[in-house]
């Protein structure tokens, strides 16, 4: 403790190292009050503001990050969809081409069958007509020949039996000739 007499002694040329206890006391009390105020109100307020700002900034950054990743996901999905659509389109094109080819082949086959059928029918018809023509021709030619021969020969050939025999023989010869000719044509084919 600094005694009063010491301070009194230093009064003339005050010793700057000797404290004034009054001042020291005021500083101690003042500082403790300030410390209390700072601890109770000032520091928490600043810390809170600081924390809020950090959160706001970090929140903003996180949000931006999230938006970015969302956009990227969307883009990836879009590209995937685009790829799918392209694949789908090419698959459909391929299918259509295959289908078209199949349809063409089917029609070709059908046409061929039809053509074969028509040809066969025509041949049959031709054959039938030819047979009927041959048949009617045979009768007609016989009568015509007979008529012609009777006109040429006259009354000599009145006898029916004889004339019938002559005609038959002529026709048999004709048949023989024709079949020989047909055989030659078949061999040529």
């Amino acid at each position: 403790m600094i005694s009063a007499s010491l301070i009194q002694a230093a009064e003339g040329d005050a010793n700057p190292l000797l404290p004034n206890p009054w001042e020291a006391l005021v500083v101690i009390l003042g500082f403790l009050v300030l410390l209390y105020v700072v601890k109770k109100w000032i520091a928490p307020a600043f810390e809170k503001a600081y924390q809020t700002r950090i959160e706001a900034i970090e929140g903003g950054l996180n949000e931006a990050e999230k938006a970015k990743s969302e956009a990227e996901a969307m883009k990836a999905e879009y590209e995937k969809n685009l790829g799918d659509a392209r694949a789908e389109a090419s698959r459909m094109r391929e299918e259509a081409r295959a289908e078209g080819a199949q349809i063409v082949a089917e029609h070709k086959e059908k046409a061929a069958v039809e053509a074969a059928r028509i040809t066969e029918q025509a041949q049959q018809q031709i054959a039938a007509e030819r047979a009927s023509a041959a048949h009617s021709l045979k009768a007609e030619v016989g009568s015509l020949a007979t008529q012609l021969a009777s006109r040429i020969v006259g009354e000599a050939l009145e006898d029916d039996t004889r004339s019938q025999r002559v005609v038959d023989r002529f026709l048999a010869d004709l048949d023989a000739d024709q079949s020989a000719q047909a055989g030659q044509t078949g061999a040529a084919q």
Binding site: A4, N20, P21, W22, V26, G30, V33
Partner: peptide, 19 residues
């Protein structure tokens, strides 16, 4: 407290003012 040297003076007022 003048017997302890100086009484309540300008310096102490300024300390309170600073707080």
């Amino acid at each position: 407290m003048a017997e302890w040297g100086t009484g309540f003076g300008k310096n102490m007022l300024m300390v309170i003012l600073s707080v």
